[in-house]
Amino acid sequence: MKGTIFEIREFCLQDGPGVRTTVFFKGCPLRCSWCHNPEGLSRDIETMRGQPCGRVVEASELAGELHKGDDFFQRFGGGITFSGGEPFAQIDFLLELASLLKPLHLVAETSGFVSPADYKRGAAAVDILYQDLKHWDADAFSTHCKGDLSLVMDNLTWLKQSNVPHVIRIPLIPGVNDLPGYEESFVSLLNGDKALQRVELLPYHVTASVKYELMNKPYKPTFDPSAEIRKPDLDIFKQHNIQAVLA
């Protein structure tokens, strides 16, 4: 079946173990105001830098392109990462693609803002799941991401008791989620997490606005992008036996 992607980028070093080739799925149900990939929001084919942005592609064709990296992955490790956009928003396409890519090592990065059924199917299709945690507070999530946090929390609850190896990613957004004691707030969400490998904290970067300009879209952050980010106290995670790293 067909899906929509906007980029294939090789040699992504932060998207999983080893050297990754990342496929960016186009379309996302959330609207986080700090989003670094505005071209991943809409499922439609758009224009960026005067070039068409987005491509509708058969899973088999895409798998063929990605398999070209097999010799590299076999030799040096690494694999394919599904990112976006929200890859689980195109779950059937993702599942077909994943089945065609196996036994390559697969990772998916998700916001968790998808139906529990889709979430479970997606999680089962990859070797490691990268789960985003943007906020612990439903109102804040709704304000800054335009979504219902309970859906994410349901999926997280399932993930925590599952055997799916996963990494939790926390984007640190100034004034949004770096509030005093935020480490504790996030830690409390991760109580009893069975297959958690580690937590990665990713500080917001001001370059996020660049791509909006290239797409002639307005960049309207719901926070002050130039504000300083409160540095995380990684020891708090450590006290709860959670390995945390600051990217």
């Binding site: 040699f11 070093l13 932060q14 080893g18 590299f72 030799r75 040096f76 990217a247």
Partner: peptide
């Protein structure tokens, strides 16, 4: 060209070193 941030990541050096090795092979 490889963006200089790649080298600063964990294991970045080892990963970048795979490129010339791959090239040679």
């Amino acid at each position: 060209e490889i963006h200089d941030s790649a080298f600063r990541m964990e294991d970045g050096l080892e990963k970048v070193a795979c490129i010339p090795k791959f090239f040679v092979e």
